[in-house]
Design a protein around this nucleic acid. Sequence first.
DNA 1: ATAATAGTTAATTTCTAGGTTAAGTATAGT
DNA 2: ACTATACTTAACCTAGAAATTAACTATTAT
Lengths: 119, 119
Amino acid sequence: MTDIHIPQDLDAVFGALANKHRRDIIYVLGLQPCSISFLAEMRGLSLPAIHKHIKILEDADMIIRRKMGRTNYLALNRHALRRLQNWLMQYHTYWGSDEETLENYAQFLSRSKTKKKEQ
Amino acid sequence: MTDIHIPQDLDAVFGALANKHRRDIIYVLGLQPCSISFLAEMRGLSLPAIHKHIKILEDADMIIRRKMGRTNYLALNRHALRRLQNWLMQYHTYWGSDEETLENYAQFLSRSKTKKKEQ
DNA sequence: ATAATAGTTAATTTCTAGGTTAAGTATAGT
DNA sequence: ACTATACTTAACCTAGAAATTAACTATTAT
């Protein structure tokens, strides 16, 4: 488990996921590794187009590549999703509460105003 | 709990999070609602600049706004993070396994080749 | 050797992101 | 009424996203 905590470039990760093609690629690669041409045909995209998406996913460290002959097999880097989950868990307390903060804050503000008037 | 399953625009959500300013805004708003000018000063950005970030976060349904007088108070929409978590949980089986799929697949392929030769 | 397959790279186009300055609107305070 | 505050909107700029076509490289099959 070489799980050295490499500070993830979240801009790259979220940017990579901000595209349906790439989310679908992630989904498919989770099921089974595929070649680049297979993904191109599946998504109805040209090879240069899919190549750019692959590069974005690679730069975000979300996929792994292995060249076998002239074919490049891609697979999901499962660590990437785990690290994303870890990031999201930092915010767990944020969505833990059911009350919307703004409600509380609005009440707090109106109460302070009343107090001011009382002083 | 009006948790009607509104199909989230994931492009918008991930796009919104693909920026450090906006992730930091989400972080701060999770702690306490703030005005737009406060965020602008905090991030060292002009009002028009922060205004655009706010719009992107609003379009992604990640924040809530309440106008009080001339001041706009913003708060985190906690549902948004919950829905993101739900999305990520769909992929739970993906990062559940420790083995990298590519390893398996490579082995599978080399085994098939050997078999072919054997035939 | 030659042709087909699998990717890559370059050049071009169109659209959007993220910032700026400058001007406009709405509310609050004096 | 006048001025400051809190945004909002418009016009502009630069850089990068996402696609295309066309040309190039590397590997495999005949």
